[in-house]
Simulated scan of single mutants.
Amino acid sequence: MQPIRFPLDSSHEHVELNQLLKLVGLCDSGGAGKALVASGVVRVDGQVELRKTCKIRAGQTVQCHGATIHVVAG
């Protein structure tokens, strides 16, 4: 799977992890994103992340189900 580049809106300094998963299409809703995170399949910068609303900032990388998301400044 090709890496996904996610530009943060310039008016926001972060996006919540569960919302990021929804916004890039890895799940259908924020609730489904929370379930993914809780299941232990999501990694942030190489480490398993269990905080569903963890703040993801530009420069971080998220991995889930074979997808890699690079969060960049918009």
Rank of each mutant, 00 (worst) to 15 (best):
M1L: 11
M1P: 10
M1T: 09
Q2T: 11
P3A: 10
P3E: 14
P3N: 13
I4G: 00
I4L: 13
I4S: 03
I4K: 09
I4D: 01
R5Q: 14
P7I: 04
P7K: 12
L8D: 04
L8E: 07
L8H: 07
L8M: 10
D9S: 14
D9E: 14
S11Q: 15
S11A: 12
S11E: 15
S11H: 12
E13K: 14
E13I: 03
H14I: 01
H14P: 02
H14C: 11
E16R: 15
L17E: 05
N18W: 07
N18P: 00
Q19V: 09
L20N: 05
L21C: 06
K22Y: 07
K22L: 12
K22M: 12
L23S: 09
L23H: 11
L23D: 13
L23E: 13
V24D: 05
V24N: 08
G25V: 01
G25S: 07
L26D: 05
D28N: 14
D28R: 15
D28P: 00
S29A: 07
S29D: 09
G30A: 03
G30N: 07
G30L: 04
G31M: 03
G31Q: 07
A32E: 15
G33T: 01
G33F: 00
G33Y: 00
G33S: 05
K34E: 10
K34P: 00
A35D: 13
L36W: 04
L36V: 00
L36G: 01
V37L: 07
V37H: 03
V37E: 05
V37P: 01
A38H: 11
A38E: 14
A38M: 10
A38Y: 08
A38L: 11
S39K: 13
V41E: 14
V42E: 04
V42W: 05
V44F: 06
V44A: 03
D45H: 07
Q47K: 14
V48N: 07
V48Y: 06
V48W: 08
V48K: 13
V48G: 02
E49N: 04
E49M: 12
L50H: 13
R51I: 04
R51C: 01
K52A: 08
K52E: 13
K52F: 02
T53M: 09
C54W: 12
C54M: 12
C54R: 15
K55S: 09
K55D: 10
K55W: 04
K55T: 00
K55M: 12
I56Q: 05
I56S: 01
I56H: 01
I56W: 01
I56A: 02
I56K: 09
R57F: 01
R57G: 02
R57L: 08
R57A: 08
R57M: 12
A58C: 07
A58M: 10
A58F: 01
A58V: 05
G59H: 06
G59C: 09
Q60R: 15
V62G: 00
Q63N: 10
Q63K: 14
C64M: 06
C64S: 06
C64E: 06
C64T: 01
H65Q: 15
G66C: 07
G66H: 10
A67Y: 12
A67M: 11
A67F: 13
T68D: 02
T68H: 02
I69K: 11
I69W: 05
V71Q: 06
V71E: 04
V71M: 09
V71R: 09
V72F: 05
V72W: 05
V72P: 00
V72C: 08
A73R: 15
A73E: 15
A73V: 03
G74Q: 12
G74S: 10
